[in-house]
Design a protein around this nucleic acid. Structure first.
Lengths: 150, 150
DNA sequence: GTCAGTGCAAAGGTTTTGCAATTTA
DNA sequence: TAAATTGCAAAACCTTTGCACTGAC
């Protein structure tokens, strides 16, 4: 499946008069192989395991390209940090449940909420294009329940 | 009502062994007088209409203070920009509907969604602490409906 | 007088960009 | 060979901080 994404990338590259590169393939491979949300420096260090010389600029440029061709999506979380995830269009839309204790991020979808969101947009004369919902709380791990009290 | 917020700020300052200052009062006044969401540079330029010499650092420091005492809340939107709004605790919780055409931000609350959010958190063993929901779309203004097509 | 607050400029952190060298088609 | 890609370092942002000075208590 990761290979599938790489194919899409190659198609985009070919269709737009761009050229392939080893670095870009490595970064894309690392990105699509990531469980969920990754930061630039995580991508960089993982990419460097395969090629020591990959630069941070190339990671930024590759992620920008992946965003443009709809394979990646940049997200700004409440904490302010920027993370990338495989685009909704590729792996299905989902929202996030985030633990303030351990940072764990759980993805979920709720059809009723999706419906209500459309209703609300309509009520205000909006044509909905996208949305994000993030729930912040503490998971059931002991240390997280403890942090909650503090 | 803006005066009411200023009073709360004064109370916090007094209770914590801090001192009052003209600049801080001006910035707070500007902030509480803002319709909705403001960026640092907007606050700075509005504050400078009342006192030319106010520095950016003071605006940052004041907004940090207002966040600490629960009067302001910092928000990171999808675009990546950081905006401040009067805290939920002060003006009631709400979510956002944002026009991608003109940038207009509408606040709303939907009890059903709030309920569903709690249900979801519970299903995953989470204790909900906070949440955010942002709907992005195009409002019914002609120019915005047009941008949508592009 | 003491200590918090301020303005300025420098320092931090993150992301983008200019450029010469390299690689792809 | 022409044009895209890369790495590096500089630049561009945004935010925080150190410091000497000012102002509140």
């Amino acid at each position: 499946m990761s290979e599938d994404f790489i194919e899409q990338l190659r198609g985009y590259v070919a269709d737009n008069g761009l050229k392939s590169s080893r670095q870009r393939e490595i970064i894309a491979e690392v990105f699509f192989g990531c469980e969920e949300h990754v930061a630039i420096d995580q991508l960089l260090s993982k990419a460097r395991e395969k090629d020591t010389k990959i630069s941070q600029a190339t990671v930024y440029r590759t992620m920008k390209l992946l965003s443009e061709c709809g394979l990646a999506k940049m997200r700004h979380f409440q904490s302010g940090q920027t993370l990338y995830e495989v685009s909704d269009g590729q792996k299905g839309h989902h929202d996030h449940l985030i633990c303030l204790g351990c940072g764990k991020i759980i993805e979920f979808v709720n059809a009723k909420i999706e419906q209500l969101q459309h209703d609300i947009a309509e009520q205000h004369g909006f044509e909905l294009a996208d949305h994000r919902m993030e729930l912040y709380g503490y998971c059931d791990a002991a240390k997280c329940a403890e942090k909650k009290r503090a």
